[in-house]
Nucleic acid binder design. Structure first.
Lengths: 202, 202
DNA sequence: GCTATAGTTGAACACCGTTGACTTAACGGC
DNA sequence: GCCGTTAAGTCAACGGTGTTCAACTATAGC
């Protein structure tokens, strides 16, 4: 699902099935995932889309705007959150770690979430994008269903563990964690996530 | 303490107390902390050091080499590790969180560890530097003193929590965690760190 | 004094994101 | 059927980046 909306063209040519805008977004998605935010240059994206680089900023304002329009969250929270809750309150942490590890392993580190996390270290606007999405679409419904106290704080603490896991296992690739089985990772990290989700905090 | 060694000039002028190399390192330290790895340009560092930019790459090879030579770890592990162990095995996690939070709060986010963590997201060579330092100088002696099983795995898991905390509280500044009291943060995160340090893993 | 070498500079290179002027093409109103 | 407006799209340029290379200077050792 998209993180930011694309300005739908109000007028202009309407005959082709794919406008330049869509070709740009497609090329951007591919290159951002492949080379990361910094590694994907506007010129390279433009070349792949068969247009001039300045057309990209004409459409999306700047590189951050293109990133926000192109990147997509790989899960639909409305679908995933019920699955996380399926096994009862006491298993939500394990299920959440399993969902992330499963997705990240399957896509081999080249996935939107990790790309966004990395980019958010350098670009404050991308950090805002990430933070708002997490809060509104992921954590808010999750904690509403759980009914835990201090949901905002818990979501922050949960983020420290989940983003830390993503960084160490998939970006920095610390061993032996990077090569460990998903089931083991769930067993190791799950309890920490569970504590932040439903445990006593102080 | 330094993370990488500076090539000491084998010959050359020796009369001044401060060579150009030291002035470059001093300027680099200041600008890297102030503006981050990307924000500190070689030309700006050179200007501050009163020297031409190409002299920097002559001395340090490239920008990463300069960073490795300039950045310093704010603690001496030989001094800090005994302090962490002072209150017994059961308090090491809390003491470690306290050490990091104390340092990071005092320096307001502009400190070598966070700067290095951020830079390591984009520069693999800096990630190597960080990983090797953590393993050899910090985690190895700590786990030797603790005598826990699977020290390599435990150090990875500990890193997920510590680096995640640094990212969320100081770089991304998620609220309410970013504004919480140090003592509260220790109470919330300490148990997770403690579990990775001495708890049962599976 | 001569020569090798380290220190140091300035110009240049290839690339980056972004800007602004410009052309082209389609539309709505008359 | 023309005409002004507007979006689509191109092109060259700007100021910036890290890095390279040839040139020059000053010192140390012989």
């Amino acid at each position: 699902m998209a993180l930011a909306k694309t300005k739908t063209p109000r007028t202009g040519r309407r005959r082709g099935v794919s406008s330049s805008q869509e070709q740009i977004l497609e090329a951007a998605r591919e290159l951002f995932l492949q080379r990361g935010y910094e590694g994907a240059t506007l010129r390279a994206i433009a070349k792949k889309a068969g247009v001039d680089a300045s057309l990209i900023v004409h459409f999306f304002g700047n590189k951050v705007g293109l990133f926000a329009a192109a990147i997509e969250w790989p899960h639909d929270p409305d679908v995933e959150i019920p699955k996380l809750l399926r096994d009862g309150r006491g298993r939500v942490g394990h299920n959440l770690v399993g969902l992330l590890v499963g997705t990240w392993d399957r896509e081999g580190g080249r996935n939107p979430i990790l790309t966004m996390i990395r980019a958010s270290m350098a670009e404050p606007e991308i950090a805002d994008l990430l933070r708002n999405f997490l809060r509104e679409r992921l954590y808010a419904p999750l904690f509403e269903a759980l009914g835990s106290d201090r949901p905002d704080l818990r979501s922050n603490l949960l983020a420290t563990q989940m983003i830390g896991l993503g960084m160490i296992r998939y970006v920095q690739r610390f061993e032996p964690l990077a090569s460990a089985n998903p089931a083991d990772v769930i067993a190791w990290v799950g309890p920490s996530a569970q504590r932040y989700l439903t445990g006593k905090l102080d």
